[in-house]
Nucleic acid binder design. Structure first.
Lengths: 115, 115
DNA sequence: TTATATACATAAGAATCTGAGGCATCATTT
DNA sequence: AAATGATGCCTCAGATTCTTATGTATATAA
Protein backbone atom coordinates (compact mmCIF):
# COMPACT_ATOMS: atom_id res chain seq x y z
CA UNK A 1 0.00 0.00 0.00
CA UNK A 2 1.13 3.56 -0.49
CA UNK A 3 2.65 5.87 2.06
CA UNK A 4 -0.10 5.43 4.60
CA UNK A 5 -0.33 2.58 7.03
CA UNK A 6 -3.98 3.25 7.74
CA UNK A 7 -6.49 0.51 8.22
CA UNK A 8 -4.19 -2.43 7.71
CA UNK A 9 -6.23 -5.39 6.68
CA UNK A 10 -8.32 -3.50 4.16
CA UNK A 11 -6.18 -4.79 1.30
CA UNK A 12 -7.91 -8.17 1.43
CA UNK A 13 -11.28 -6.47 1.22
CA UNK A 14 -10.13 -4.37 -1.72
CA UNK A 15 -8.94 -7.45 -3.61
CA UNK A 16 -12.12 -9.39 -2.95
CA UNK A 17 -14.38 -6.50 -3.90
CA UNK A 18 -12.56 -5.78 -7.15
CA UNK A 19 -12.84 -9.44 -8.06
CA UNK A 20 -16.55 -9.39 -7.31
CA UNK A 21 -16.97 -6.65 -9.87
CA UNK A 22 -14.57 -7.95 -12.49
CA UNK A 23 -14.92 -11.74 -12.62
CA UNK A 24 -11.17 -12.22 -12.97
CA UNK A 25 -8.10 -10.06 -12.63
CA UNK A 26 -4.36 -10.52 -12.44
CA UNK A 27 -2.06 -8.97 -9.89
CA UNK A 28 -0.58 -6.17 -11.89
CA UNK A 29 -4.03 -5.25 -13.13
CA UNK A 30 -5.22 -4.83 -9.55
CA UNK A 31 -2.42 -2.41 -8.71
CA UNK A 32 -3.25 -0.35 -11.79
CA UNK A 33 -6.99 -0.34 -11.11
CA UNK A 34 -6.53 0.90 -7.57
CA UNK A 35 -4.08 3.55 -8.71
CA UNK A 36 -6.57 4.67 -11.33
CA UNK A 37 -9.60 4.70 -9.01
CA UNK A 38 -7.78 6.79 -6.41
CA UNK A 39 -6.03 9.06 -8.89
CA UNK A 40 -2.64 7.79 -7.81
CA UNK A 41 -3.22 8.35 -4.11
CA UNK A 42 -3.16 4.71 -3.14
CA UNK A 43 -0.42 2.55 -4.61
CA UNK A 44 -0.51 -1.11 -3.77
CA UNK A 45 3.03 -2.43 -3.55
CA UNK A 46 3.86 -5.82 -4.96
CA UNK A 47 5.38 -6.89 -1.66
CA UNK A 48 1.97 -6.44 -0.08
CA UNK A 49 -0.20 -7.62 -2.95
CA UNK A 50 1.30 -10.97 -3.91
CA UNK A 51 1.49 -12.39 -0.38
CA UNK A 52 -2.11 -11.25 0.14
CA UNK A 53 -3.25 -12.98 -3.05
CA UNK A 54 -1.41 -16.15 -2.10
CA UNK A 55 -2.97 -16.12 1.32
CA UNK A 56 -6.49 -15.65 -0.01
CA UNK A 57 -5.89 -18.50 -2.42
CA UNK A 58 -4.56 -20.73 0.38
CA UNK A 59 -7.71 -19.95 2.35
CA UNK A 60 -9.79 -21.13 -0.57
CA UNK A 61 -11.30 -17.74 -1.34
CA UNK A 62 -9.59 -17.33 -4.70
CA UNK A 63 -8.79 -19.68 -7.55
CA UNK A 64 -6.11 -19.12 -10.18
CA UNK A 65 -5.64 -19.66 -13.84
CA UNK A 66 -2.34 -19.15 -15.65
CA UNK A 67 -2.47 -17.62 -19.08
CA UNK A 68 0.07 -16.67 -21.73
CA UNK A 69 -0.32 -13.21 -23.24
CA UNK A 70 2.33 -12.03 -25.69
CA UNK A 71 5.00 -14.34 -24.27
CA UNK A 72 4.22 -13.04 -20.82
CA UNK A 73 2.68 -15.07 -18.05
CA UNK A 74 -0.41 -13.77 -16.32
CA UNK A 75 -1.94 -15.33 -13.25
CA UNK A 76 -5.64 -14.62 -13.19
CA UNK A 77 -7.53 -14.73 -9.92
CA UNK A 78 -11.25 -15.37 -9.49
CA UNK A 79 -13.55 -15.64 -6.49
CA UNK A 80 -14.51 -19.12 -5.35
CA UNK A 81 -17.93 -19.83 -3.81
CA UNK A 82 -16.42 -19.20 -0.38
CA UNK A 83 -14.80 -16.08 -1.72
CA UNK A 84 -18.13 -14.71 -2.90
CA UNK A 85 -19.57 -15.12 0.57
CA UNK A 86 -16.52 -13.57 2.13
CA UNK A 87 -16.85 -10.38 0.10
CA UNK A 88 -20.16 -9.57 1.74
CA UNK A 89 -18.82 -10.39 5.17
CA UNK A 90 -15.62 -8.37 4.78
CA UNK A 91 -17.49 -5.43 3.27
CA UNK A 92 -19.96 -5.12 6.13
CA UNK A 93 -17.12 -5.55 8.59
CA UNK A 94 -15.24 -2.68 7.03
CA UNK A 95 -18.39 -0.60 6.71
CA UNK A 96 -19.10 -1.15 10.40
CA UNK A 97 -15.58 -0.25 11.33
CA UNK A 98 -15.66 3.00 9.39
CA UNK A 99 -18.96 3.90 11.05
CA UNK A 100 -17.47 3.28 14.47
CA UNK A 101 -14.49 5.37 13.50
CA UNK A 102 -16.84 8.21 12.58
CA UNK A 103 -18.56 7.91 15.95
CA UNK A 104 -15.24 8.31 17.70
CA UNK A 105 -13.71 10.96 15.50
CA UNK A 106 -16.71 13.07 14.59
CA UNK A 107 -18.20 14.50 17.77
CA UNK A 108 -21.81 15.47 17.40
CA UNK A 109 -22.21 13.21 14.38
CA UNK A 110 -25.80 12.76 13.32
CA UNK A 111 -27.14 9.68 11.54
CA UNK A 112 -27.05 10.11 7.79
CA UNK A 113 -23.73 11.84 8.03
CA UNK A 114 -22.50 13.03 4.66
CA UNK A 115 -18.88 12.35 3.81
CA UNK B 1 -9.33 -3.99 20.50
CA UNK B 2 -12.22 -5.99 19.19
CA UNK B 3 -12.14 -8.82 16.72
CA UNK B 4 -11.10 -6.71 13.78
CA UNK B 5 -7.55 -6.03 12.77
CA UNK B 6 -8.63 -3.02 10.78
CA UNK B 7 -7.73 -0.50 13.36
CA UNK B 8 -3.97 -0.75 12.91
CA UNK B 9 -2.71 2.72 12.24
CA UNK B 10 -5.88 4.51 13.24
CA UNK B 11 -5.32 4.10 16.98
CA UNK B 12 -2.93 7.03 17.09
CA UNK B 13 -5.49 9.22 15.37
CA UNK B 14 -8.19 8.12 17.82
CA UNK B 15 -6.02 8.98 20.80
CA UNK B 16 -5.04 12.38 19.42
CA UNK B 17 -8.60 13.30 18.46
CA UNK B 18 -10.04 12.32 21.84
CA UNK B 19 -7.40 14.43 23.53
CA UNK B 20 -8.25 17.37 21.29
CA UNK B 21 -11.81 17.21 22.56
CA UNK B 22 -11.08 16.48 26.20
CA UNK B 23 -8.06 18.51 27.22
CA UNK B 24 -6.66 15.63 29.27
CA UNK B 25 -7.43 11.95 29.68
CA UNK B 26 -5.82 8.89 31.25
CA UNK B 27 -5.35 5.53 29.59
CA UNK B 28 -8.14 3.59 31.18
CA UNK B 29 -10.50 6.47 30.48
CA UNK B 30 -9.67 6.31 26.77
CA UNK B 31 -10.53 2.63 26.58
CA UNK B 32 -13.86 3.29 28.29
CA UNK B 33 -14.69 6.26 26.13
CA UNK B 34 -14.09 4.34 22.91
CA UNK B 35 -16.11 1.41 24.21
CA UNK B 36 -18.94 3.77 25.09
CA UNK B 37 -18.89 5.70 21.80
CA UNK B 38 -19.00 2.50 19.75
CA UNK B 39 -21.49 0.70 21.98
CA UNK B 40 -18.94 -1.94 22.86
CA UNK B 41 -18.00 -2.72 19.29
CA UNK B 42 -14.45 -1.44 19.50
CA UNK B 43 -12.42 -2.42 22.54
CA UNK B 44 -8.96 -0.97 22.79
CA UNK B 45 -6.67 -3.46 24.48
CA UNK B 46 -4.13 -2.27 26.98
CA UNK B 47 -1.35 -4.02 25.10
CA UNK B 48 -2.08 -1.74 22.15
CA UNK B 49 -2.96 1.43 24.03
CA UNK B 50 -0.06 1.90 26.43
CA UNK B 51 2.73 1.38 23.89
CA UNK B 52 0.89 3.80 21.58
CA UNK B 53 0.65 6.43 24.33
CA UNK B 54 4.32 6.01 25.18
CA UNK B 55 5.30 6.37 21.57
CA UNK B 56 3.26 9.53 21.08
CA UNK B 57 4.82 10.96 24.21
CA UNK B 58 8.31 10.02 23.01
CA UNK B 59 7.56 11.81 19.75
CA UNK B 60 6.68 14.94 21.69
CA UNK B 61 3.00 14.93 20.75
CA UNK B 62 1.73 14.21 24.27
CA UNK B 63 2.75 15.36 27.72
CA UNK B 64 1.95 13.57 30.96
CA UNK B 65 0.95 14.45 34.48
CA UNK B 66 0.72 11.92 37.29
CA UNK B 67 -2.10 12.33 39.76
CA UNK B 68 -3.28 10.51 42.86
CA UNK B 69 -6.99 9.73 43.02
CA UNK B 70 -8.23 7.67 45.98
CA UNK B 71 -4.83 6.10 46.54
CA UNK B 72 -4.74 5.14 42.89
CA UNK B 73 -2.29 6.54 40.39
CA UNK B 74 -3.57 8.08 37.21
CA UNK B 75 -1.39 9.20 34.34
CA UNK B 76 -3.06 12.03 32.48
CA UNK B 77 -2.12 12.76 28.89
CA UNK B 78 -2.50 16.10 27.11
CA UNK B 79 -1.68 17.36 23.63
CA UNK B 80 1.48 19.40 23.23
CA UNK B 81 1.70 22.18 20.64
CA UNK B 82 3.11 19.68 18.16
CA UNK B 83 0.36 17.28 19.14
CA UNK B 84 -2.32 19.84 18.32
CA UNK B 85 -0.90 20.31 14.84
CA UNK B 86 -0.64 16.57 14.35
CA UNK B 87 -4.33 16.03 15.07
CA UNK B 88 -5.34 18.06 12.05
CA UNK B 89 -2.79 16.34 9.88
CA UNK B 90 -3.70 12.83 10.98
CA UNK B 91 -7.42 13.52 10.69
CA UNK B 92 -7.26 14.77 7.10
CA UNK B 93 -4.98 11.87 6.24
CA UNK B 94 -7.53 9.41 7.59
CA UNK B 95 -10.40 11.26 5.97
CA UNK B 96 -8.61 11.10 2.64
CA UNK B 97 -7.90 7.45 3.03
CA UNK B 98 -11.53 6.63 3.79
CA UNK B 99 -12.62 8.59 0.72
CA UNK B 100 -10.21 6.64 -1.43
CA UNK B 101 -11.50 3.44 0.09
CA UNK B 102 -15.03 4.44 -0.91
CA UNK B 103 -13.87 5.10 -4.46
CA UNK B 104 -12.47 1.61 -4.67
CA UNK B 105 -15.20 -0.25 -2.85
CA UNK B 106 -18.31 1.63 -3.95
CA UNK B 107 -18.63 1.36 -7.71
CA UNK B 108 -20.72 4.14 -9.19
CA UNK B 109 -20.17 6.29 -6.14
CA UNK B 110 -21.35 9.86 -6.59
CA UNK B 111 -19.91 12.83 -4.73
CA UNK B 112 -21.88 13.57 -1.60
CA UNK B 113 -22.27 9.89 -0.93
CA UNK B 114 -24.34 9.22 2.17
CA UNK B 115 -23.06 6.60 4.59
C1' DT C 1 22.20 0.73 -24.18
C1' DT C 2 19.47 2.21 -20.79
C1' DA C 3 15.22 3.14 -18.98
C1' DT C 4 10.30 2.21 -18.54
C1' DA C 5 6.33 -0.71 -18.60
C1' DT C 6 4.59 -5.20 -17.95
C1' DA C 7 4.43 -9.41 -14.96
C1' DC C 8 5.59 -12.63 -11.56
C1' DA C 9 7.94 -13.61 -6.94
C1' DT C 10 10.58 -13.62 -2.23
C1' DA C 11 12.70 -11.82 1.98
C1' DA C 12 14.48 -8.73 5.76
C1' DG C 13 12.93 -5.58 8.73
C1' DA C 14 9.51 -2.23 10.73
C1' DA C 15 5.22 -1.27 12.73
C1' DT C 16 1.12 -2.45 15.02
C1' DC C 17 -1.69 -5.38 16.91
C1' DT C 18 -3.57 -9.71 20.26
C1' DG C 19 -3.45 -12.23 24.26
C1' DA C 20 -1.30 -13.31 28.30
C1' DG C 21 0.75 -12.10 32.28
C1' DG C 22 2.18 -9.05 36.41
C1' DC C 23 1.29 -5.58 40.18
C1' DA C 24 -1.79 -2.83 43.16
C1' DT C 25 -6.21 -0.71 45.25
C1' DC C 26 -11.06 -0.76 46.27
C1' DA C 27 -15.95 -2.40 46.34
C1' DT C 28 -19.07 -6.03 46.14
C1' DT C 29 -20.51 -10.58 46.46
C1' DT C 30 -20.29 -15.23 48.25
C1' DA D 1 -12.74 -14.28 55.14
C1' DA D 2 -12.23 -15.09 50.38
C1' DA D 3 -13.19 -14.50 45.75
C1' DT D 4 -14.52 -11.64 42.01
C1' DG D 5 -14.66 -7.62 39.29
C1' DA D 6 -13.69 -2.90 38.38
C1' DT D 7 -10.08 0.46 38.31
C1' DG D 8 -5.34 1.62 36.87
C1' DC D 9 -0.67 1.04 35.40
C1' DC D 10 2.78 -1.88 32.82
C1' DT D 11 5.59 -5.47 29.72
C1' DC D 12 6.41 -9.15 26.43
C1' DA D 13 6.09 -13.19 22.99
C1' DG D 14 4.07 -14.00 18.93
C1' DA D 15 1.12 -12.99 14.82
C1' DT D 16 -0.09 -10.13 11.07
C1' DT D 17 0.53 -6.81 7.69
C1' DC D 18 2.99 -3.65 5.71
C1' DT D 19 7.56 -1.20 3.18
C1' DT D 20 11.60 -1.54 0.72
C1' DA D 21 14.76 -3.98 -1.75
C1' DT D 22 15.92 -7.57 -4.69
C1' DG D 23 15.48 -11.09 -8.40
C1' DT D 24 13.78 -12.89 -12.92
C1' DA D 25 11.94 -12.17 -17.61
C1' DT D 26 9.92 -9.89 -21.93
C1' DA D 27 8.84 -5.83 -24.83
C1' DT D 28 9.25 -1.14 -26.22
C1' DA D 29 10.88 3.53 -26.46
C1' DA D 30 14.59 6.96 -25.97
Amino acid sequence: MSNNNLIKGSLQTIILKLLEENERMYGYEITQRVKELTEGEIKITEGALYPALHKLEAEGLLSTEIQQVDNRVRKYYSLTKDGQKEVTSKMSELQGFVENLQRILTPGLKPGFNI
